[in-house]
Amino acid sequence: MPEASEKFNTAMAAWQQWQEAPWGRLRYTVAEANLARHLDALDAGPLRVLDLAGGDGGDAVRLAARGHHVTIVDYAADMLAAARERATAGGLTELITCVQADVSTLPADLADAEFDVVLCHNLLQYVDDVPATLAAALAPLKRGGLFSVMALNRHSAALNVAVREMDPAAALAALGTDQYQARTFDAALTLHTAEEVIPVLQGLGCQDVRHYGIRGFCDYITDDARKYDPAYYADLERLELATTARAPYMHTARVFQLTATKG
C-alpha cells in the first residue's frame, strides 16, 4: 500500500497523541488482555510473533515486554522508525525486528517462517479484498498457532454518531453504508463486522474463533476530559476488561477483535 504510507508518515504526531489518550490506551490494554487469554495455551517459552501493519509498535512492545520475539511489518518508514525508538526506550531492541514491506507481498523468509502468533490489527479497513488479505496474513502462521484480527466495527458507527454528535439523521445514514472517513489519517475506510469476518476465517481453516469487543463503553461516554482522571480511568478500564467477551457489549463496541487457531 505505497500510496497510503505518506498519509501515515505525516500523521505520526496525531497518531501518537491518540495512543496516549484514554481511548488509545484502552485499545492496547484490552487487546493485550485478550491475547493473554490464549498465549499461555501455546508452547512454553518465548513465542515468535508477526505483527502485520504493526505501525509504531503499539502491540509489539507489549508482547516483547512479556519476553516474546516480535517482527513488525509495515510499509510506512516513519512508523517503523518510531517503533525502533520505542524498542530502544523500553530496552527491547533484541526482541523487536522491523521490516519495511507490503503485508500482501511478504519477503520469502517471513512468508515461510511459521510464526507462533500473527497479528492483523487495524488493517482490514484499508484493503479492498478481505479474504485475500486474511489468507495472506494466515500463510506465515504455523498450524495450531494463534491468529488475531482487529478492525473498526460497523455496528458501532450509527450509535457513535447518534451519541457523540447527537445527529440522528447522520446516524440513520450510517446504517446504510460501510464507508467511514478517519480523522487521524484522513483516510477513507471500509467498515466490517465480526459476523462477516468469522465465516471467512472459518473458510480459511481457522478453528475456535473467539469474538471480543474493545471500547464498548468508552466511546459512548461524551465527557472525554473526565477519562483523563486516573481514578475514573481505572474504573473504566476494569469495566472494559470485564465486558470485552460479554454479550451484547462486544457487538456494539467500537472495535472488534477475533482470535482463532490455525487448523
Rank of each mutant, 00 (worst) to 15 (best):
R246V: 15
L63F: 04
I214C: 01
V99D: 08
E6R: 14
A260N: 05
F147H: 03
L63E: 10
T133P: 06
Y75H: 08
A157P: 01
G67Y: 13
L123F: 07
N122V: 07
A174R: 10
E3P: 09
H155I: 01
A83P: 03
R25P: 08
G145I: 13
A187N: 07
E6W: 07
L258F: 02
R37D: 15
Q179C: 02
G145A: 11
L159G: 10
G216D: 01
A89I: 04
T133C: 15
H211F: 14
L175T: 02
D40N: 08
A82V: 03
S5P: 03
L241W: 03
G24D: 10
N153I: 11
V49K: 02
P230F: 04
Y233M: 05
Q125W: 09
A136M: 05
L42Q: 03
P2H: 14
D223K: 01
Q17F: 03
Q19H: 11
V103Y: 07
T190C: 10
L191G: 14
T177R: 05
A11P: 02
V73Y: 13
L123P: 06
N9W: 00
D40Q: 12
V127M: 08
F115L: 06
T222F: 02
N9R: 05
N122Y: 14
R154E: 04
A14E: 14
K262L: 06
L201Q: 06
R37F: 03
Y249W: 15
K7D: 15
D51R: 02
M79C: 00
D224E: 15
L52H: 07
A44H: 05
P22S: 06
R183L: 15
V163H: 01
R66M: 14
R86Q: 12
R86K: 14
K227W: 05
T29S: 12
A157D: 06
G24T: 13
V70Q: 10
P199A: 08
L191Q: 14
A111M: 09
L124E: 12
V70A: 09
